[in-house]
Simulated assay, not measured.
Amino acid sequence: MATDRHSGRRAAVLGSPIAHSLSPVLHRAAYAELGLRDWTYDRFEIDEAALPEFIRQLGPEWAGLSLTMPLKRAIIPLLDEISGTAASVEAVNTVVFTDDGRKVGDNTDIPGMVGALREHGIEQVDSAAILGAGATASSALAALAQICTGVVVAYVRSDARAAEMRQWGERLDVEVRTADWTDAKEALSAPLVIATTPAGATDHLAAAITEYPATLFDVLYDPWPTTLAAGWLAAGGVVVGGLDLLVHQAALQVETMTGFSAVPREVMRIQGKLALEGNIA
């Protein structure tokens, strides 16, 4: 017999490392606002080796999972189906368990990026720049496939990374040109700059911010603001941050796991900010 979708369900975020994850704060805030008092959302330190057994032992009370690194690709062979969005970047960050026991993978990072940009008034751009070439950069390309009408220039550190980004561009039908990381300051004049690099990697670019910067999307959220984001704001530019992305992608996860469509994004954002400030656990 199928479990009542709105009664006593479980969800969690898996990854390694996982202690820093804000997902429990965001999802629990949504559950409380939606009246899902008996829903739980936890975090589990799970690596690639432990993932198959963890998935195997899950019972019918489970509604879904959030996946972070290094599991976004490792989960794919364990699923019954993945969405076209997830397939486009070979990355799953969301698993929903259906009433008939199937495990369905999706990717909310990509529509989360689009949603975060649209919230800040960015509906379409005629070109863009990406700083970095890791997994988040491929999701950024997939998001740009929906809103960028022209060329995307990716600033990378190696020929191998450059080749990967061009391949992703071909796959996603985005015109990608690559440039060396040493020229990254040239990115700052683009209508939209998406920084996908680790903390500290773009700090040196703050001194090169143009007089009238357009929009920066920095996917980091801790520490915040980054040096680049702070300089961008000071120069009068628009900044979209990592917490914006987290809230939008988490809200989409809550929607698919619970079936509720009116997910309280602003409540989730407030709780996320409080957690980053150390005011809630």
Rank of each mutant, 00 (worst) to 15 (best):
L34R: 12
D100G: 03
Q253E: 13
G121Y: 07
Y221L: 06
D222E: 14
L172R: 08
I110L: 10
V238P: 00
R166K: 15
A230H: 05
T178N: 08
W181F: 10
T196N: 05
R56D: 10
N279H: 14
L71T: 05
H6Q: 14
T202E: 12
T108L: 14
G278A: 10
W181E: 04
E53P: 02
A12W: 12
E81M: 09
R166H: 04
V240F: 09
D180F: 01
G241W: 08
D218F: 11
A140I: 05
E45L: 15
P17K: 08
F44L: 12
I55P: 00
A145K: 06
V25K: 08
I110T: 05
A30H: 13
G59Y: 02
K185G: 04
R73D: 04
G121A: 05
T256R: 15
A11C: 14
R37W: 03
G121T: 00
F54M: 12
T197I: 13
I209F: 08
H120I: 00
S23V: 12
R43H: 11
A214D: 12
T196V: 04
G35P: 10
G112D: 00
E170Y: 02
L36R: 09
V114G: 00
D42E: 15
G101R: 11
G121I: 01
M165A: 06
A208L: 03
Y31E: 07
L14V: 06
W62Y: 08
A128F: 01
E175S: 09
H204P: 01
I280V: 15
A91Q: 01
D100W: 06
W62K: 06
F217Y: 15
T210P: 03
P70N: 07
R161P: 00
S23C: 11
G112C: 01
D38L: 12
F260R: 10
K273M: 13
G105S: 07
Q124I: 01
R9S: 07
I76W: 07
M257L: 13
C148D: 03
E45C: 11
R269S: 05
A281F: 04
T227L: 12
V96R: 14
A229P: 01
Q249M: 11
A201I: 06
R171I: 03
A137I: 01
R171N: 12
L274S: 09
V219C: 06
E48K: 11
G115C: 02
A133F: 06
T85L: 09
L188W: 10
R28K: 14
I209T: 06
S127H: 06
H6R: 14
E53M: 09
F44V: 02
T215H: 02
G8R: 13
L245F: 09
S23H: 10
A2Q: 15
E266T: 14
E170W: 05
Y31M: 12
N279T: 02
A163W: 04
G64N: 09
T227E: 14
I280H: 09
V247R: 11
L243D: 00
E266H: 14
L71A: 04
Y155P: 00
T108Q: 10
P77C: 07
R166F: 02
P198A: 07
L34S: 08
A214T: 05
P24I: 12
V174D: 05
